[in-house]
Simulated scan of single mutants.
Amino acid sequence: MFLKQLQYLREIERYKSFSKAATACGVSQPALSRAIRQLEDELGVVIVDRKKKMFGITDDGGRVLKWAHDILRGVSELRNEVSVAKQAIAGIARIGVIPTAVHIVPLLLDAVQARCGDFASEVHVLPNGAIIEKLASKELDIGIMYYDQCPQAKAFQVRTLYAEQQVLAASSVFQLPEGDDISWEAAARLPLALLTREMRCRQLVDVGFQTVDIEPMIRLETNSLELIHAQVMTGKVATILPISSFPLRVPPPGRLGMRRLPGFSPGAVGVVRLSEQATPEFASDVWDSVMKTSLQGDIDLLCKPATAPGGKA
């Protein structure tokens, strides 16, 4: 039995498809199928039910999967332990984060550094569902995601991290109204680059426009924040995004104007982990550091105008 076979099996369960699992593992589908056949032959059980039209794992396969998860988790923890010992560091923080919260991660890592000293980190940018899957399989220690998308089951511990604030952002090419706010009607008259509709923060934007019964002028839809930021900086489009999706450490006053949208229903970003009696000490320290980090001030700072030398804005 090889670890690769167990990894293949884990991905088959995740994607419910041999072809998608093979792509995720970087191997051909025939190679992956042969590996699973070999595993079944070695164990003397059928793991995947190939007779049904719908993908299915047999009862025996379910038991094998449980052991596969335990073995792979144990191997991952062993590798981390060896790496930690070799590097003489406090531990390795494994974090999953939704794309629109990426820029808060450096602030959280600083908090862990202050508490624990030198450490390493693995940060994965993932959608909500994938974060939950990787928490459940113990591939992640904590997840940062939309609070209302977190499971409220006893298996998970969830805490609110911050209230998301979405803003309209545009380069100086666009003449935005004076003040801190912009109306939905005015926002709808600007060419917009928005995230795709399956993303939670975009759904909140759609609700905002629907509330005032206005159709926005959308010129770009993408799941890439980097592409939206790049297009906004060209001056061809404006955008509506969570303010935390912009770099918190390098606010862009003078380059981007930002205005709040009144009546916006904000999403809440939370931090989530598995509820377990025995949590590794370093993972507990990471959680405690996140819990004690205040992010609201850094987020609010983005909406404030830059202060020029001499104290003038």
Rank of each mutant, 00 (worst) to 15 (best):
K154L: 13
R197V: 06
E215I: 15
R73W: 05
V112K: 03
K53H: 11
L190Q: 02
Q7S: 10
V272H: 00
A155R: 13
V102Y: 04
I218W: 07
S17H: 11
R14A: 15
A308H: 04
L161C: 11
M145W: 02
S19G: 09
S171P: 08
L227W: 03
A193S: 07
Q166E: 12
L192W: 07
S172H: 12
E276M: 08
P305R: 10
K236A: 14
A90C: 05
Q166T: 13
L220D: 01
S284A: 11
L126K: 08
P151M: 13
A230L: 04
L3V: 03
S245P: 05
A278M: 03
K53Q: 14
A22T: 07
R73H: 08
V272P: 00
D59S: 13
L241P: 03
L161S: 10
A130E: 15
L3T: 03
I92Q: 02
V286S: 07
I214F: 04
T23V: 13
F55S: 12
G310M: 00
P106I: 04
S171K: 06
N223C: 02
P216C: 09
I214A: 08
L109A: 05
P253A: 11
E178L: 10
S17N: 15
R10A: 15
D180G: 01
L6T: 09
F174I: 05
G26S: 09
K138C: 13
S284E: 10
R219C: 09
E276Q: 13
S33T: 11
A136C: 04
A114E: 14
R159L: 14
P177F: 04
